[in-house]
Write a protein that binds this DNA or RNA. Structure first.
Lengths: 156, 156
DNA sequence: GTTGAAAAGCCAAAACA
DNA sequence: TGTTTTGGCTTTTCAAC
């Protein structure tokens, strides 16, 4: 589909390396080496191959928002007035740090956003002062996450 | 709310450390040390404090699903027959590796899931063979993500 | 694609201000 | 909290297989 038709082949060892690092990005490469029983240098080369292929797009520290008092996740379906205004509305959404995800979607609304806030009062404030006020936003539907049961990456 | 009323205070240096590591978990601590102009050992001590507080909940390698042919993200609102069956349905959803997130939500449906699949055919197959077949699932509403514009963590 | 070894660099604890 | 020191590991590269 893209011009880049580079075929990436990953074998069982690559998978083991990736699975390990997907759970803990700071694990020493030599420890992986011991687990998969090849040399550290070999792991290193494989990682360079995987990085070059684009399969590995980085690593992140995961921080726990609850510790900072952020206890509420919500999904908000946003209806926009006119399609032509969408890019501007998205630009405004990017300025709201509580918006963690934003997707153009098929279906009833134009975009679906995921937001993280401290509590329901914070959520209401965000809706009234930061989301609804964006030019082009006509209506929203909010779904509060009561409990997240699954949170993971693609399985390889 | 929890028994653990440990007050965690993070200052500007902690924030700089965290922001750096949230973008690249494998950056050497000494490099952060050079950027924030304190010693590596001090960074190390701060990280131990932050880990102990629970604010840092780990690190992950981020892999790019597109390289493996996974191009389609969708959100699916799931209606369940009876609340009593929910835990069993969740258990079944956990067995579907394409389900990346699963939230009990307020609003029309009982749970909202986020799935990652290769294409629309794969999505349809998942819906017909893996989601709709789960006991207790009565109806679903699917919203395909046409384009994800924002993807980030909490800002600190 | 893998190895082993070597140089460079990093981590983590200790001792102390 | 912060720093410096220090020993032990890890990373990264490279010639050789």
């Amino acid at each position: 589909m893209k011009a880049k038709t580079k075929t990436i082949t990953i074998d069982g060892i690559d998978k083991k390396i990736l699975r390990t690092l997907m759970e803990d990005a700071r694990i020493p490469i030599l420890e992986i080496a011991r687990n998969v029983d090849i040399s550290g240098a070999a792991i290193h080369q494989r990682l360079r191959k995987l990085e070059k292929s684009g399969l590995i797009s980085g690593s992140k520290f995961i921080i726990n928002p609850k510790i900072l008092g952020y206890d509420t996740v919500a999904f908000i379906g946003v209806y926009l007035d006119k399609a032509v205004h969408n890019p501007e509305a998205i630009k405004q959404l990017k300025k709201v740090p509580e918006v963690l995800e934003c997707h153009y979607t098929t279906g009833n609304w134009n975009v679906l956003i995921k937001i993280l806030c401290k509590d329901n009062a914070h959520l209401m404030h965000l809706l009234n002062n930061d989301i609804q006020t964006i030019s082009g936003v006509s209506r929203t539907e909010t779904f509060i996450s009561l409990d997240q049961q699954i949170d993971r990456q693609i399985s390889i």
